[in-house]
């Protein structure tokens, strides 16, 4: 059974049909990439997964439960973590605090008036956060202020913040956008490491080279519809994909 199931999703903005009967099945333990040229509807689709937009028709089911109409914090508590195009971190807190905070959210739920205990004495949370920072290679910067990190390190931190919650599904929105080449490669390596542990991921990308070595399955979105869904090796040579990306010119 698939973990995330998107059925016949339509979304219209005024005269623009942003999503046109999109269907998608994401199997547990796989990496599913959604690629497509700019304006294909990738971000709209992602926003429908995470409660930012409600589709006009259709359903989004995660782990047997509909995600439609749920506020973001409930979607997260259900087991979906999200990485943003521009890393969303707590810029004026230390890295350790950045990772401890999601760990608290996982342990104590969406609200808890936990005002008496001391953060520094919560050994379980602290250890989990430290371990997660080691995992992404930021342990030695644990006491640095997050806002001073490089773009690539911010992305690593954001991944650590998601992973410490042990999500069932990780959504990544153009995880390498705006990064230098070296940072891009490091980030891809890190994502591969995470995928190899069996994490289910949905990656949105417009650069297909990024997801090529990562994805188990690729859906190509163009003008609001999935035009092709196939294994990565079959995607590149597909004429419809070339047409969508290059407007009909042959590679």
């Amino acid at each position: 059974m698939s973990l995330l199931s998107v059925k016949d999703v339509n979304k219209r903005f005024g005269g623009l049909q942003a999503l046109d009967k999109v269907n998608l099945e994401v199997e547990a333990g796989t990496v599913h990439a959604i690629i497509g040229p700019n304006g294909a509807g990738k971000s709209t689709l992602l926003n429908c997964f995470i409660g930012r937009l409600d589709p006009d028709t259709g359903s989004v089911t995660f782990d047997g439960k509909s995600l439609l109409g749920l506020p973001p914090h409930e979607i997260n508590q259900a087991g979906v973590s999200r990485v943003f195009q521009t890393p969303e971190i707590f810029a004026d807190l230390t890295l350790l605090r950045n990772v401890m905070l999601p760990a608290f959210a996982k342990r104590d739920g969406s609200f808890s008036l936990n005002a008496w205990p001391l953060v520094d004495r919560q050994a379980d949370i602290r250890d989990a956060a430290m371990h997660q920072l080691e995992d992404v290679g930021l342990a030695e910067k644990a006491e640095h202020i997050a806002g001073q990190l490089s773009r690539g390190d911010k992305r690593r931190l954001e991944l650590a913040m998601c992973l410490v919650q042990q999500p069932k599904l990780l959504l990544l929105d153009e995880p390498t956008a705006g990064m230098a080449r070296a940072d891009t490669n490091n980030t891809i390596d890190l994502m591969k490491k995470i995928a190899d542990r069996g994490m289910t991921m949905v990656v949105i990308e417009h650069d297909m080279h990024v997801v090529f070595s990562l994805a188990n399955k690729i859906s190509v979105l163009a003008q609001g519809t999935v035009i092709v869904e196939d294994l990565p090796e079959n995607i590149k040579g597909n004429p419809r994909v070339q047409e969508a990306y290059l407007g009909g010119a042959h590679l």
């Binding site: 506020p71 914090h73 409930e74 999200r82 971190i89 959210a105 609200f111 913040m161 919650q165």
Partner: peptide, 10 residues
């Protein structure tokens, strides 16, 4: 934004 997507009710 990060708070909400970290599962916390603001």
């Amino acid at each position: 934004n990060r708070m909400a997507y970290t599962g916390l009710n603001i």
